[in-house]
Each structure stands twice: as structure tokens, then as C-alpha cells.
């Protein structure tokens, strides 16, 4: 393919400047009203809805030629969709890309927040499928917007109450709702609740893009992000019994890998960069010698 001549017909980072300006305005508004879902005129993107079109539009609008981009999906740089999006920006923007959390200026993510703490000059862009935290309690947009406007969040706690009444504990494990700066209840995107505390008072700017649902929202740096709970049933994150089988890391989020059809399983870091840098630094887990089949 003569990719170069073809791509020359597209603007830097794919979107035209008018569209970028429109999206940047939405982003600025989102930053000004933390946790509020700003509607924006989401564009058709060259990947399907639900595959990160919101995140891609946000990234395309904030990306500059000097940025260093990292893209992860499920915590990993090498998952197919992350590879695909990274290649897309290499192709249409020619920016430098990296797998290193520390070296990136923009990190686009689906379903995870990197384990390494983010810094002030970094922006984390989340891909969001359903931006509305009240959606599964109330399907109508007209009603949920009113509920946000009037701060009517009782229903959210009814759901948590039901969880405790049924299971003895809150049974929401991902997309766990948070309250931002004491005002808006927000969906953190389907990250495991393990990652919720990382959003709180983060020095990095966090942007959320939902392409199909046409919403952008934001958590500015150093903003309070509190996971909803009850006084007598406080929010808790997942714990794993074992450390990572490859790098021995504890207090990180682990993926389960099925080894064979006889029930063999191992648990490894979902954040591949974190795992690799630990291994490079000499950390070892119980199966780090073995080759993955």
C-alpha cells in the first residue's frame, strides 16, 4: 500500500482543525465542571463505535507533534486494540509512541489505570462505553440529566443497599460509581474498582471520551474523587491472594491466564509495562522461569 500518499489527504491526527476546536471546547468545559458530561458532536471515526472512538477523538484533539503517546487496553500495550490505535496515531500523526508509562505525555486507556503513579505533565484519556452512571437504573437520558441537575442520587445508593442486603457487601466490581469534587456522580469507565483510588487527587489530567454516546467529561488534576459507599460498609478494592507469577508484584491488578484444559491457571500483572520493568529490575515470581505455552 502506498500509505504515505493516501494519508497525506488527512489532517494531522486525522481530525480536521474545526472538529478539534469543537472537541477542545468540550474538553475545556468538562475540566471547568468536573464530572459533568459535556455533550459534543462526536464524529464518525475509522474504527467502529464502541472500540474507542471517544478516546481517539479526545487524543486526536489534544495531541501535538512533540507528544509521546502510550496506548493500553486491559492494562497491556500489546493487546490488539491498543496496537491498532497506537498504529493509527503513528500513521496519521507521526508522533513518537512508547510503552513506558513514565515516558508518555498522553496515555490512552481502556479499562485500566497504569500501576505507576502518574505525573503532573501527563494526560490520561479513557475510552468510555456508557458515560452515564445512572443508566442502568434509569434508561432515559432526559430523566438522568434531570437527576444530575437536581443532584438526585438516592437511586444510586438504593442499588448499593440492594447489593449489601443480597450479598452482605457491595457487589459492583468495575465501573464503580464515584462522586467528583462533592458534586457530580461519575462513571469511571469500566476500570476495575481496584483503580478507583488512583483517580483521587491525581496530579495528572484525566479526560473521558464516549464517542457513540457523544459525551466528554473530565477530572482535573488534584480533584477529589470519592467512591460511593455507606458509612458502615466503606468502599474496598479487590485483593489478590497471590503476587504476580512473573514479577512477584503485590498490590497490583492481576489477570487470570488459563494454562491448560485441566484447570491450570496463573495470575500475572495486567499492566504489562509494570511487569516487564519489574522483571528487568530483577524481580521474580514463582513461574517467571517457565515459558508460556
Amino acid at each position: 500500500m502506498n500509505a504515505h500518499t493516501q494519508v497525506s489527504n488527512y489532517n494531522f491526527a486525522y481530525l480536521d482543525e474545526q472538529t478539534k476546536r469543537m472537541i477542545r471546547r468540550a474538553i475545556l468545559k468538562a475540566i471547568a465542571v468536573p464530572g459533568y458530561q459535556v455533550p459534543f458532536a462526536s464524529r464518525e471515526m475509522p474504527m467502529p463505535y464502541g472500540w474507542g472512538t471517544g478516546g481517539v477523538q479526545v487524543t486526536a484533539s489534544i495531541l501535538g507533534p512533540d507528544d509521546v503517546l502510550k496506548v493500553i487496553d486491559q492494562g497491556a500495550d500489546d493487546t490488539t486494540n491498543a496496537v491498532s490505535i497506537r498504529k493509527f496515531f503513528q500513521k496519521v500523526a507521526g508522533v513518537e509512541t512508547t510503552t513506558s508509562t513514565e515516558d508518555a505525555t498522553i496515555i490512552q486507556t481502556r479499562h485500566r489505570i497504569p500501576e505507576a503513579p502518574l505525573q503532573e505533565d501527563q494526560i490520561l484519556v479513557y475510552q468510555v462505553p456508557i458515560p452515564e452512571p445512572l443508566r442502568f437504573l434509569e434508561p432515559r437520558e432526559t430523566e438522568t440529566r434531570k437527576m444530575h441537575a437536581l443532584e438526585e442520587y438516592g437511586l444510586m445508593h438504593v442499588k448499593l443497599y440492594e447489593d449489601i442486603a443480597k450479598n452482605g457487601h457491595i457487589a459492583t466490581t468495575y465501573a464503580y460509581p464515584v462522586k467528583v469534587e462533592g458534586r457530580y456522580v461519575m462513571d469511571p469507565s469500566p476500570t476495575p474498582k481496584f483503580d478507583n483510588p488512583k483517580m483521587h487527587m491525581s496530579p495528572a489530567l484525566q479526560l473521558f471520551g464516549a464517542g457513540r454516546e457523544k459525551r466528554i467529561y473530565a477530572v482535573p488534576p488534584h480533584t477529589e474523587v470519592i467512591s460511593l459507599d455507606f458509612e458502615d460498609h466503606p468502599f474496598e478494592v479487590q485483593r489478590f491472594d497471590k503476587p504476580c507469577a512473573l514479577c512477584g508484584a503485590e498490590q497490583v491488578y492481576l489477570d487470570e491466564v488459563v494454562l491448560d484444559d485441566r484447570g491450570g491457571r496463573m495470575f500475572v500483572c495486567s499492566d504489562t509495562h509494570h511487569c516487564e520493568s519489574r522483571q528487568a529490575a530483577g524481580h521474580r515470581g514463582e513461574m517467571s522461569g517457565e515459558v508460556l505455552s
Binding site: E152, Y153, G154, L155, H157, V158, Y161, E162, I164, A165, K166, D229, F230, E231, D232, H233
Partner: peptide, 27 residues
């Protein structure tokens, strides 16, 4: 009523709506 949530949550909803956040007390 909310037919798909428990009796307890039906009674507790108004309390939660006005800011009660103690599960045990609501119950």
C-alpha cells in the same frame, strides 16, 4: 413502589435521597 428492589430499599429510598449514608441505620 419500585417492584424490583427489596421492601427495605423501598422504604429506605427516601432516606438515602435526603442523604442518609449509614446502611445499618437505614435498615
Amino acid at each position: 413502589l419500585r417492584m424490583t428492589v427489596s421492601a427495605g430499599a423501598n422504604v429506605g429510598e427516601r432516606l438515602m435521597a435526603v442523604g442518609d449514608r449509614h446502611y445499618g441505620k437505614i435498615r
